[in-house]
């Protein structure tokens, strides 16, 4: 029995007459102190998978279990970090973290709570913004505040739902390092969802791709056998990194192609439109953004 496990799980929505399967036959087992990355395209049901693991959603069929017990409701031991921060906008960063600490450690005194809050806020290097409201922060700072709140729950499993998707490349790499540092100094189980292959290879022990939805399922996993700590600057020279990256990328692209082929039997009737004149108008407006959306039939 593994630490965190999904067994033959299906998730479907809608009325019985018109049921849509989001996830199908999901089998995942995560060992203690393992860092697992789940990689998939947007819209494939990654967030639903995360909700399953955190207990926010229950499977339609199959079972989800944590430490051998079925997951019936969410709780602080399964610390989820939401994709869209979910910071309470009327509370400052410090108060957001304190709210979590108050729940998990109800017996602490006020000063102890404050100290603990500072500890977690410092962990994500946000101590200068303790008294700021979420709307006064940048996206990256909000993401870090959210991480700090999740860490303050002292969860046994850290569930990160695309924690870095909304960030620019620089902030992203900085936060990746921070998460890795925290994980390495204070080992615990992590399940991270991402859509970035580099990120997955850099951070995870194991990478599990999620196929395209609807009816998405987990496909064959990739084990990352690279020594830690991994250095992002020298990573590009490591053949193992390059191999994994290209293999996973190829696999994912294959998935994408496969799904397109599945859809290609649906032919959309295109209007028979022919240009009358190829010469450019005097002040030619640019329609490139429109073209990519409407004219090429196989885009997306």
């Amino acid at each position: 029995m593994s630490f965190l496990e999904l067994k033959d799980v299906d998730v479907s929505f809608g009325p019985p007459s018109n049921r849509v399967d989001i996830l199908k036959d999901i089998n995942l087992s995560v060992e203690e102190n393992e860092f697992v990355a789940i990689i998939g395209f947007s819209g494939s049901g990654k967030s639903t998978l995360m909700n399953l693991l955190s207990g926010l959603q229950l499977p339609s069929n199959g079972s989800s279990s944590f430490k051998g017990k079925a997951i019936k409701e969410p709780g602080p031991e399964l610390g989820i970090m939401f994709q869209n921060y979910s910071l309470l906008p009327w509370l400052s960063v410090g108060d957001n973290v304190k709210l979590a600490i108050d729940r998990v450690f109800p017996k602490l005194s006020k000063t102890e709570v404050h100290e603990k809050m500072l500890h977690y806020v410092k962990m994500v290097k946000l101590d200068h913004a303790v008294d700021k409201k979420p709307h006064e922060l940048s996206g990256g700072m909000r993401q870090r505040a959210s991480l700090s709140r999740t860490l303050s729950l002292d969860p046994e499993v850290l569930l990160l739902d695309e924690p870095l998707s909304a960030l620019d490349a620089l902030t992203r790499s900085e936060l990746q390092d921070q998460i890795l540092n925290i994980w390495e100094s204070d080992k615990r189980t992590v399940v991270m969802i991402t859509n970035d292959v580099d990120e997955a290879v850099l951070m995870a022990d194991r990478i599990v791709p999620l196929t395209m939805g609807p009816g998405a399922t987990l496909s064959k996993e990739f084990v990352v056998n690279m020594p830690r700590p991994r250095n992002r600057h020298t990573l590009n020279d490591e053949p193992e990194f390059m191999r994994l990256k290209s293999e996973i990328t190829a696999f994912m692209l294959g998935l994408n192609k496969e799904s397109k082929e599945m859809k290609s039997d649906i032919k959309v009737a295109m209007p028979d439109v022919q240009p009358r004149d190829f010469s450019l108008p005097i002040a030619a407006p640019r329609f490139s953004h429109l073209q990519s959306k409407h004219i090429s039939p196989n885009a997306n």
């Binding site: 602080p76 309470l88 009327w90 709210l99 729940r103």
Partner: peptide, 29 residues
């Protein structure tokens, strides 16, 4: 109320009264 905020309450396992004072009332003020 934002569903995400209610999810936060669920993860934190806030009781009814704490949910009322910490999430529901501030959010609808």
């Amino acid at each position: 109320i934002d569903k995400d905020h209610m999810n936060v309450a669920r993860v934190l396992k806030l009781g009814f009264f704490a949910r009322l004072t910490k999430i529901i009332i501030p959010s609808s003020l």
